[in-house]
């Protein structure tokens, strides 16, 4: 397989195939390259999301978080967030789209409940003016307008449950 993985803010090219000796595939053994550097390793899945990896004779426990939108791996006290480079992926669109001007969305930075709505559709607002207050785990968070303009959309109302990333209002 050939793929590009974006990890720690840089794209890495991997080319891997199952290791075969005399034409017989070796269970769990792989060889290939990372950015052209050769590598041989052995991988075994112990339980869902838990991979035992041996590279040379260095052993690693790798734990995968199950998340389609934001995959991450835990190795040696470090959380590696990554994306497999697929032009259809959300992250790809995020980093390659969205210019500076135009309408700006106010998104929920965390899952929570809408406590107060501080502006209505059609209101003129200042940059950094509070627009919506959401609450989770006893912590309130006032979401501010990213720019001066008019509230062209207000999707939040008090009592609503919101997911992280939901668009609550649009300012233009």
């Amino acid at each position: 397989m050939k793929l590009t993985i974006e990890m720690e803010d840089r794209p890495r090219n991997l080319e891997l195939q199952r290791l075969a000796i005399n034409g017989i595939e070796q269970n769990g053994f792989w060889r290939g390259t990372i950015d052209g550097e050769p590598v041989v390793f052995e991988a075994h899945l112990l339980s869902p999301g838990v991979l035992s990896l041996i590279v040379g004779n260095s052993a690693y426990r790798i734990v995968q978080e199950e998340s389609a939108s934001d995959p991450a791996l835990h190795v040696d006290n470090h959380r590696f967030s990554y994306s497999i480079n697929d032009p259809r992926s959300l992250r790809f669109r995020r980093s390659h789209g969205a210019g500076a001007g135009g309408p700006k969305a106010i998104k929920a930075p965390m899952p929570g409940r809408v406590v107060r709505v501080l502006a209505q559709k059609g209101d003129e607002v200042q940059a950094h003016q509070g627009i919506v207050v959401i609450e989770a785990m006893k912590m309130q968070n006032e979401l501010k307008s990213p720019k001066a303009g008019m509230v062209v959309e207000m999707r939040a109302s008090p009592g609503d449950t919101v997911a992280s990333g939901d668009v609550l209002a649009v300012i233009d």
Partner: peptide, 24 residues
């Protein structure tokens, strides 16, 4: 200041690829 080791990062890359291949 703490950065992951080169080995850990390499292992993470390989694992990401393996998990991806298992998906397919």
């Amino acid at each position: 200041t703490a950065r992951p080791s080169h080995g850990a990062e390499q292992a993470a890359l390989l694992a990401a690829a393996i998990f991806e291949s298992m998906k397919s």
